[in-house]
């Protein structure tokens, strides 16, 4: 696995944890343990995203525009790797 793939997998895992826990919380909105887990994972996901984007470019359109040129269009796109 390349450094980029590793960094992306880290984002992916934390994001998946949030998606899955969020879905659980939709039907268990009072579950304190799940809420705590969600908050902990959100922090980790933010850190993972910051690390990825610092080295490998924007993950969303809203994160783009930090470079001299518009690097949102840079290849490869997700279906090309």
């Amino acid at each position: 696995m390349t450094e980029k793939q590793k960094a992306l997998q880290d984002v992916r895992q934390h994001q998946f944890a949030l998606i899955d826990a969020g879905m659980y919380l939709d039907s268990h909105p009072e579950d304190e343990m799940a809420l705590q887990y969600f908050r902990m994972m959100r922090k980790k996901k933010q850190q993972a995203e910051e690390l990825y984007q610092k080295h490998f470019g924007p993950l969303t359109l809203f994160d783009a525009g930090t470079d001299k040129r518009w690097n949102w269009i840079d290849e490869p796109w997700p279906w090309e790797v």
Partner: peptide, 16 residues
């Protein structure tokens, strides 16, 4: 359609 776009600009525009 975006999967068949050969260039970066087209891929971005169709996605967005």
């Amino acid at each position: 359609q975006r999967f068949a776009q050969p260039y970066a600009q087209g891929k971005a525009i169709l996605t967005d």
